[in-house]
Amino acid sequence: MNQNPEDLRAAGLHRGPNQVDYRETADLTNVHAAVQREHPEVMPGEVPMPLWLMVLCGVAIFWAGTSFSGGFGASYFNADNYSVHPGEEVGMAGGASGGAGAAVQGPTVIEQGKIYFTQNCVQCHQASGMGLPNVYPPLAMSEYINGGSRRLGMIVLKGLQGPVTVEGHQFNGAMPAWEKTLTDKKLAAILTYVRQDFGNTAGPITPEQIADARKEFAAQTASWSEADLKAVPPTAELPGGAAPAPAPPAGGKK
């Protein structure tokens, strides 16, 4: 639809001051009216920054600074407990709503002890703690388990070999030494568990006691024999003394 300006004017279809149909023509001097009426791009003014804007910037910087606290640690996931070592118990915030319950402890020593007992001891002493007649001594009501903790510690650290009488029954086997395989924590947990289960009623043993016992018996390289055990009074305790036996449980422990 390339119309001449004259025809447009004749038909009264022209409008505006330019009176030109500025669709593409070969003559560039009849350029687009739109282009003609444009304003040139002008340099921006030089105006000082208003004071209120500077104050706003200052406020923003201050606010931003205070909103970012704490360091860049990879283990800190909560904004409100930067001062708390992760893993430590923190007071549970109620949050937006819906209270959270109390924090629950990890597994108890006795629960742990039972797990390690199951992993290490049941092959011989059985899960019931009854052992195998003539082969493996029972733990239930054993004189070496109840009473003082020293003999028990000795046995479990260095092992026991040769004939031994437990609860009136003779056994002649070889219990391995556990000092190299299990940590103080695990040994203490196992012994604590054993001393209060299977009908036993003796007190707990701490990892520190096991650690001291290790040092005390460091010179002993071979397993003990029954004679060694008999040389120790039945009420003797491991270094660190005895902890009180737990009160008899109201219901059965698992």
Binding site: S75, G87, M92, A100, G101, A103
Partner: peptide, 11 residues
């Protein structure tokens, strides 16, 4: 550890 202790919720 880094998540803090587990919470048992009674709702």
């Amino acid at each position: 550890k880094e998540a803090g202790p587990n919470i048992e919720v009674k709702t």
